[in-house]
Amino acid sequence: MTRVTIQQVAKAAGVSPSTVSNLLNGRTERMVPATRDRITRAIADLGYRPNRAARQLRTGRAQTVGLIVPSVGNPFWGSFARELEVAALEVGCSVLLCNSERNPERERRYVEELWDDGVRGIVLCSSLPSLDHLADVVSRGLRLVTFDRPAQPGDPDSVVSVSIDNHVGGFLAAEHLTSQGHERLTFVSGSLASVNRTGRFRGFCTALEAAGLDPSAMPMWTGIEDTPFGDVEAADVGRQAAHALFSGDEEPPTGVVAINDMTALGFCRGLRDLGLRVGRDVSVVGFDDIILADLYDPPLTTVRQPIARMAALALDEVLAEEAREAGRSVLLRPELAVRESTAPPALAVGSTTPTAAAAATSASLTPSQNGGAR
């Protein structure tokens, strides 16, 4: 189908193409109502749709914003995408969503495609330590805002970041458990090879040290080889961790901090497989405060991110008409939402071990439930 041009709209409305452009870009202060009506009718009759890429290149303003997340398989990223889109629509922008699963090559390909389509501003959420795979596009003028990743040494000067303080978040989660009397804690995650995850784990360790505990003496779970980050398989990673930690010979933890809520909820499911009670036999803390956290039984204690505010800030940065100062980072403080998945350690939990039937349940999990490749 042949695309309708602005010249055709101008001819149908009996005006110049520049007058049509003025209406499309909101410059209607001196335009009489009759002219506006003619142009509007011509646009509707012809089915004209502005070429956003050309319009953006011509005006230098971002009409479409790119958003690259690890995976909307984690509801946190779906919620963030929605909040960013709400903020974008309020200022007349649209959002193009991509899932990278933290793969640098996949990210580079998405960024190149968005650039070729005229997108000049992107919010990147993978939190990988290096941006070298995107340096070339950034040097061409791409406005890149990293989310949940403070500025790192070696980042291009123009890159801006919007993030919570993940170190504080990890500290709050672990401190909550130590303040309740827990002395055997575990950190459960996929790979820690991202800036945000490393920050959360360091905060966890800092809280343990502040409580007089040795982090190196605590068991730790960092995922499985087939799914290093576990963004899609987060619940399976948590469930497998529960089976591994409570089905072995080692003394199990009484408290667990998970890298995110989906991993925490998977861990809770694993505990139930083994006949253990969340919030009574074992306390579990998540991270993000997704909607499922409050709906779970028992409701999940978690570290809350101010997601709507962060999305609005990220959009402000990506749409800024002038470049910000080099290495600018916007760092917000998270807060702890205490619910029923945590409590002081039960007196008998030190001797609690899964029953033979529970161990059999563990052995009978499907490959997907065990976090294997899907």
Rank of each mutant, 00 (worst) to 15 (best):
P306N: 06
G223D: 00
R55W: 02
V9K: 00
R36Y: 06
A348Q: 10
G238N: 01
R197K: 12
L96F: 13
G181Q: 07
N74I: 03
R27S: 06
F229H: 08
A346N: 01
E250A: 15
R333M: 09
M220N: 10
N260G: 02
S341W: 00
R328H: 15
T366S: 15
M310H: 02
T206S: 15
V123M: 03
A258C: 15
A241N: 00
V32T: 11
S362H: 11
A360Q: 11
I39F: 00
E113S: 14
V119C: 10
P345A: 12
A234G: 15
S161E: 00
R106E: 15
W77M: 05
T227Q: 00
F229Q: 00
L24N: 06
D165P: 04
G47P: 12
N22D: 13
M1P: 11
L96V: 15
L124K: 03
P298M: 09
P104V: 04
A210H: 13
V137C: 03
V95Y: 06
A211W: 10
G270M: 09
P228M: 06
R304P: 00
P50G: 07
L265Y: 02
H167C: 14
V111G: 01
S158Q: 14
N74F: 05
R339E: 04
A207Y: 08
L131N: 00
V232H: 09
L24C: 12
A337L: 11
P75S: 09
V232I: 14
E317F: 14
G248D: 14
C98M: 13
S139A: 15
R82T: 12
V137Q: 06
V137P: 01
V9I: 08
Q56K: 03
R109D: 07
R324H: 15
E101T: 03
H182E: 09
F267C: 09
I224Y: 00
D37R: 14
G203D: 06
A358T: 07
P253L: 06
L315Y: 05
E251Q: 15
P104C: 07
F76S: 01
D249K: 13
V69R: 01
S216I: 11
G169E: 04
G248Q: 11
R149N: 07
G26V: 10
D226H: 00
S21P: 01
G170Y: 07
R309H: 11
A44K: 13
T40M: 12
L208Q: 11
S79I: 08
P17S: 12
T19V: 12
W115Y: 13
F267D: 01
M31E: 06
G248C: 14
D281F: 12
T186F: 03
I43N: 01
V303S: 00
R269K: 09
R239C: 10
E251R: 14
V188G: 01
T254Q: 04
Y48F: 13
G266D: 02
L177A: 09
C268S: 14
A88Q: 01
L84D: 03
L347I: 11
R272K: 14
R140Y: 10
S364K: 08
N22K: 12
G270W: 02
R280K: 15
G286L: 03
S158L: 11
T366D: 08
G14I: 13
E335F: 05
L97Q: 11
R309F: 06
R324F: 07
D132H: 10
A242T: 06
E322G: 03
V257P: 12
F147S: 03
E85P: 04
T186R: 00
Q56N: 05
L57A: 08
P153L: 08
V86F: 08
